[in-house]
Design a protein around this nucleic acid. Structure first.
Lengths: 190, 190
DNA sequence: CGCGACGTTGATTTGCCTCAACGATTGTGG
DNA sequence: CCACAATCGTTGAGGCAAATCAACGTCGCG
């Protein structure tokens, strides 16, 4: 069953009766996407949220100056959402691109909003997940302030080896906030 | 009433019946703290959450190397929480220091946890707040990757003039992730 | 008054970027 | 399947952003 991974993931975060869990998951629909295709593109309005079953995505944004900045990579067991665009129905500033052929479970906006109203535990689930994400972003900021690009690179390799192995150096550099030329020089050193 | 600010703040985030709002707020207790004193210190376990009524706080962390990194400043209408320490009851990595004589509304851990169980709307409130905070941290990361220290400095002055006016240059530099010497040189330029 | 934290300034060094050139790898159309 | 283009990775020269170290003036505070 393709829903097992999602159910496991949810149960890791909260306690939930199995009938509620089943009902919640029933709104998620399997969806396949090919390498290099976009699940969401900057400027469009996000009408879904997704949970990755297979493959890998890169979530990035391009600012007015043309700088491309990678926020994170989402592999199996990660979520794909643009909260700002999804909740406020405004144009997204994010791109979600499949780095390889991938499979996700998608839920539509109206179903998600309905779940919030009908199953209070869903509020708790996303409250807990958001808070965990918040902690991670704060830690990342501190790392960025206190470590050099070289240290951050090795930390990334150490913590996400299975994700890193799927990425090009250019993508890693964009995530670290450095040029790919400089990343190449870092690699030569160590 | 010192609770008006908190009530206004909550109503900006969610719709909530006034009886629930009253009940929720009743668990918050006023608390005063003197300039330079700590509401929370790194290493201790966080047993409260707070909402700032007056004054200003600096939330920062010191890593093994002795680098001090300021995560944010909390003035009137902001929250003081260390989610990681509060939820998981583990030693905090954050310091919350009053930059001037301040007043906060504090809620104890057991009361907060009870509120989650008894008033589902509280889950929604903190889900919404966490998601908004998440968006802000993501934007900040992109700024840090795409802008120079000078640009980030002026952006900070522009967006938070009332907070910036209360801070020393050293505190601002720590927030921007630069040395105070370099901040001084930035100021001379513009 | 005198001490300690803050702010400024200059000289030097380091981390990282820009630009440019060149192999290596991957993708694509005939 | 090959030929070619496109993208990726590497390397080097030079430059800019920001750190480091050190000296000195200033201010608030005991």
């Amino acid at each position: 069953m393709s829903y097992d991974l999602l159910k496991q993931h949810i149960k890791k975060n909260i306690q939930i009766p199995s009938n509620e869990l089943d009902r919640m998951c029933s709104y998620f629909k399997p969806f396949g996407i090919k390498k290099r295709d976009f699940l969401l593109q900057q400027g469009s309005i996000c009408k879904f949220e997704g949970f990755v079953l297979e493959g890998c995505f890169r979530i990035f944004t391009t600012d007015k100056k043309g700088n491309e900045s990678t926020l994170y990579f989402a592999a199996c067991d990660w979520w794909l959402m643009d909260i700002d665009s999804f909740m406020n129905q405004k144009p997204s500033s994010l791109n979600m691109q499949a780095l390889e052929d991938s499979k996700v479970l998608m839920i539509e906006r109206k179903d998600k909003l309905a779940l919030y109203e009908t199953i209070p535990t869903v509020e708790k689930l996303f409250r807990v997940m958001s808070q965990n994400a918040l902690i991670a972003w704060q830690r990342l900021l501190v790392r960025n302030h206190s470590e050099t690009a070289k240290e951050r690179y090795h930390h990334f390799l150490e913590v996400y080896p299975n994700i890193a192995s799927k990425l090009t150096d250019k993508q890693i550099a964009s995530y670290l906030g450095i040029t790919h030329e400089f990343l190449s020089k870092i690699k030569r050193q160590a």
